[in-house]
Design a protein around this nucleic acid. Structure first.
Length: 157
DNA sequence: GCCAACGTTGGC
DNA sequence: GCCAACGTTGGC
């Protein structure tokens, strides 16, 4: 019973195309520094579906679909003093931050813009659309996942 | 443990 | 660039 998630990124920083261009079309989802988002990642299982969302771009949109290919493990950037994600309070003995690996499945033929999602009554309960919801990792219900694929004109698997 | 100040996110 | 809606920090 796969679950579904939405993960946000600024495309200038790491885009869906960057994921597709990564070795094996895979990458670690580094840099999450929010406990709630971290806890969601801890709940992810291999095979879970991921909506890859581009934020802080015009227009904001879901760009593609990915899958979880490795479950949560410590994010190495927390120990790296040269990284923008460095956390002086984290140690390998007591890591604070986790990440998962995801693999690009497919780019959406047409990006699904935030406006389109907002305007769809079937998606009115989406965590992404809740006011003030700024988490970079959010759960997506099965119904929402199916509806999104339908809107994107993509069959599930 | 409270809460004010501050920083960040992210749509607009 | 603005600003609402958070989360985090740190003094007390």
């Amino acid at each position: 019973m796969a679950k579904y998630w939405l993960m946000k990124t600024e495309p200038d920083c790491f885009s869906f195309a960057d994921l597709e261009a990564s070795p094996g079309r895979r990458s670690g989802w580094e840099g999450v520094r929010n406990y709630q988002a971290r806890n969601f990642m801890r709940d992810m299982k291999v095979g879970d579906g991921v909506l890859f969302y581009h934020s802080s771009t015009e227009p904001p949109h879901v760009a593609g679909i990915a899958r979880v290919v490795r479950e949560a493990y410590p994010d190495p950037t927390q120990y790296d003093e040269t990284s923008q994600y460095f956390d002086p309070k984290a140690t390998p003995a007591e890591p604070r931050w986790l990440h998962v690996d995801i693999e690009a499945e497919r780019a959406l033929p047409r990006p699904l813009t935030l406006t389109v999602l907002r305007d769809d009554p079937a998606l009115s309960e989406m965590a992404l659309l809740r006011k003030g919801q700024r988490l970079s990792v959010l759960p997506v219900s099965e119904g929402e996942w199916q509806r999104l694929l339908e809107l994107a004109g993509v069959a599930d698997r």
